[in-house]
Design a protein around this nucleic acid. Structure first.
Lengths: 358, 358
DNA sequence: GTTAGCACTCATAAGCATTAAGTGCTAAAA
DNA sequence: TTTTAGCACTTAATGCTTATGAGTGCTAAC
């Protein structure tokens, strides 16, 4: 455990290293620290901090840099979220000041705002809930062999997609199919619906319909679109701001990773249900993942700030910032706190505008 | 005008430079050329080619590199598209071997295939036609204050989106609005529909409806989604394969540019209607833009291969490959020719499956 | 416990000679 | 008239040495 003074020095090193990008030496530190101590004393303290694993040197005679453990300690014990400037606040308010027709537009916009504000990459996942249920399914014929399939969930989401239906499917068949779906599946959780679609439903449908296959496909497709988590990533190109030129291969891999929706849940740590990385996270719903704390070694030089937000029974979502290990955490975390509050506010506004079910 | 032999040398330099990435010297060339001439002769010829502006040197004593004009000449007069290997062909066929529910899925997939095959970035724009007309508009109430708006066009595209409608709008009002829209606008080109929406329609609606504003918004929104050209870009990260490490800023700008749908039409040269860059393009519907031929100086080291394809009265689309100035054009253009044929085939298959209107 | 002083370390840059690839030019050969 | 051999010249790249400077660790004095 570092002493009070050592902690102060660590915090200052984090601050300076973030500001300048350069390793911090004892003299620089002497001029910046509030108390009056000599560079030699600071050197002693730094040696102790290095002993404790919180600082690192690149080579024997270079300044110190916080180690991952150092950042971890800083985040867990020292960091204080800074308050957001009024300008930033009003910029956020302004950017959100639109009429949104779809919840996903808000989610998307939130990623945009956050990456613009921070100059990092941001990832936004809309509100989700594990106990969403299917509330209804309809098919509407448009003539022309086309139908619109509409699927509604308890979260208020409605997914509609257009399909072609072969001409030898009668409209009676379609109606019958829709009735079966509704009778059997409405009220079930989406997860169970998916299971059923693979097991019982096909059999059931073949009993009543001529061509059940096409219909199962169709329903499966709407379902897939309604149920897949959709991530919005904004400011990808900001990763170029801080990548070392000899690390382009790694960056390429990261870009390819980000394009795969399937790996994002594990990146955002959504798999283990809400347990944050560090013990009883002192930052509330915000948590930070650093370097080797990622499953994937690609991110050994990266940091990820994750904020979970809650929109009542509409579920909870996540918004995150991806950047280098060294980021202005104090500002960013302050920003994230405020931002996720605003986001939640906007979302409630959206949901409550029409439905009266806060 | 270069002599026959000079042209041969130019072509060989293009080939070698593309293969090795290194400037090509007279000795290397001597060993590679089919005829028996000394390096001194080659030097003379190269000097002539440089005089003509087709070759460049990085410094007085380095090998030669094709200049933009050199590439231009190569593309216009020397290049011969190579035939595609059977493996590649069957890979394409395989990748397209899916049931597609939406034309845009095909467009998207085409971008994916092309970037995977080439290891460059590819851009795909679905079939469009300037004389698409509006063929129908419907609103379907879902209860719950939600409606689905459906807009169909003469191209067979159907756009459906979900909207909230405030409770004090009666269903009679909605029906009336829909009737007005259909009476007034069906059969018009989408462009005119957009104009009308800004001029006459609002007035007309206010005569019959209480709250016309919301409705105009709604219709405008569906229209916007149905009418905006949608580009799919795949393999963005491949740009990292050939960028010089000191050029990351430029790369960042390019990424940001690619994210703006609005600049892509000018990039793909869609604005001037079908006139290709070089005179009466010898490559048919395929054209290549190089370096300073771009409007935007960001692309001074890039090349863009564009293939226009035609899907009958469903309109025509574009598929493109973005890479460095030095690309294996022979292979790529051969590939593009075959690929766009396959793409067209797939699209006709899609359209004809249900409608019988080739 | 703190500090001044000093020897030591190491990355970075600058200077310089060396090498290798490639050119241009001239004069001879074809 | 075209081609070629030969040679001087240019330049980027490499490796080597040397200087510089920021920073440390340690010791001895405060």
């Amino acid at each position: 455990m570092p002493t009070k003074r050592q902690a102060l020095i660590l915090a200052e090193i984090v601050r300076l290293y973030n500001e300048t990008g350069q390793p911090v030496g004892s003299k620089t530190l002497m001029n910046q620290l509030p108390m009056q101590i000599s560079s030699a004393t600071i050197r002693n303290e730094m040696a102790a901090l290095e002993e404790a694993g919180l600082l690192m040197k690149n080579h024997t005679s270079s300044g110190r840099v916080p180690s991952t453990a150092g950042y971890r300690y800083y985040l867990d014990y020292l960091l204080q979220p800074s308050t957001v400037s009024p300008q930033t606040f009003s910029a956020i308010a302004q950017d959100f000041n639109h009429e949104y027709h779809e919840i996903n537009d808000i989610v998307k916009q939130s990623a945009n705002i956050l990456s613009n504000l921070t100059n990092y990459t941001s990832i936004s996942l809309g509100p989700e809930s594990s106990d969403v249920t299917l509330t209804g399914f309809r098919l509407i014929s448009l003539g022309d062999d086309q139908v619109i399939a509409i699927l509604a969930t308890s979260m208020g989401t409605v997914e509609s997609r257009v399909y072609h239906v072969s001409q030898d499917v009668s409209s009676e068949d379609l109606e019958r199919a829709v009735r079966i779906i509704n009778d059997q599946l409405v009220g079930m959780s989406m997860v169970r619906v998916k299971q059923q679609l693979k097991s019982e439903i096909p059999q059931l449908l073949t009993q009543y319909l001529h061509s059940a296959d096409g219909f199962v496909d169709l329903f499966g497709d709407v379902l897939r679109h309604a149920a897949t988590e959709h991530f919005y990533i904004s400011g990808r190109s900001n990763l170029l701001n801080f990548v070392q030129p000899d690390d382009l291969d790694r960056l390429k891999s990261i870009y390819q990773l980000l394009d795969k929706d399937s790996v994002l849940p594990s990146l955002l740590d959504l798999d283990n249900d809400g347990v944050t990385t560090s013990q009883d996270s002192p930052l509330g719903p915000i948590s930070v993942r650093l370097g080797d704390e990622f499953d994937n070694s690609l991110f050994s030089d990266y940091g990820l700030i994750t904020a979970k937000y809650n929109v009542g029974h509409h579920g909870s979502g996540v918004i995150a910032i991806l950047g280098p290990t060294s980021m202005p955490y104090s500002q960013l975390i302050g920003l994230m706190q405020l931002f996720s509050d605003e986001l939640v506010k906007k979302m409630f506004e959206y949901y409550n505008k029409f439905h009266d079910d806060s």
